[in-house]
Design a protein around this nucleic acid. Structure first.
Lengths: 108, 108
DNA sequence: AGGTTTGATAACCTATCGGTTAAATTAGAG
DNA sequence: CTCTAATTTAACCGATAGGTTATCAAACCT
């Protein structure tokens, strides 16, 4: 995995399968079998995805009998949110709106 | 590059060099040479990073003489923010919600 | 026109990623 | 104790990522 945590987290999110797994886990814990079901993919592939997500601090694993349910963890997502916060002004600022406005009236 | 835009954006962010470039661009446009300066890396490597960032909608390129300045673009970051929004409740406690609410009514 | 500066392309190399199949592990059920 | 179910580990494979050096292209400056 990547040495720095933020890179690991972004890398984990850069895969639609893994984001779909997170979306499912947002509804609650689920065992591997259930997570694998929507995908045309072998079990081991799902296990790997879960390992990546776990390494990125996005999920944690539990144990219920022979099942190892995965659970969404806030830590990883919060790290992304914090990083993103530094840039929020770029899509929320009044100045950008003004800029857009000026470009718009110029085009007319 | 990845077919779906969000994957491309997350993949672009999953590299410390590219995030450092974005951090620099948050201070304003900059030509390639200046962006390359802090890194122990060849020019072509930086060009590649810029291409990845551009493909992810995180920057755009301009032209001033023989320079091709890069500029931070809100689009890509906003897409990440929107995606993240669906999960915000997972790391924001009731107290944080209150905090947001207070800030919101204070801004009015 | 010729040279310099700034950046992009091309071709290549190695490591990692995302997937596979086959075998091993772990836990519950007879 | 064996059988079965759930999941992981191991070994392998093709494609892509991130870097290199060498070469090309465009714009500016005499």
């Amino acid at each position: 995995m990547q040495p720095d945590p933020l890179s690991a987290t972004f890398a984990a999110l850069a895969d639609p399968t893994r984001r779909a797994i997170l979306a499912r886990l947002a509804l609650g814990e689920a065992p591997v079998g259930e997570l694998a079901q929507p995908f045309a993919m072998s079990g081991p592939a799902v296990t790997k995805h879960l390992k990546v997500l776990e390494g990125a601090g996005l999920i944690s694993r539990g144990r219920i009998g022979q099942q190892r349910p995965a659970k969404l963890e806030a830590a990883g997502l919060k790290a992304v949110s914090d990083w993103l916060g530094e840039y929020r002004r770029f899509w929320e600022s009044r100045f950008d709106d003004l800029d857009d406005y000026l470009q718009q009236i110029q085009g007319e």
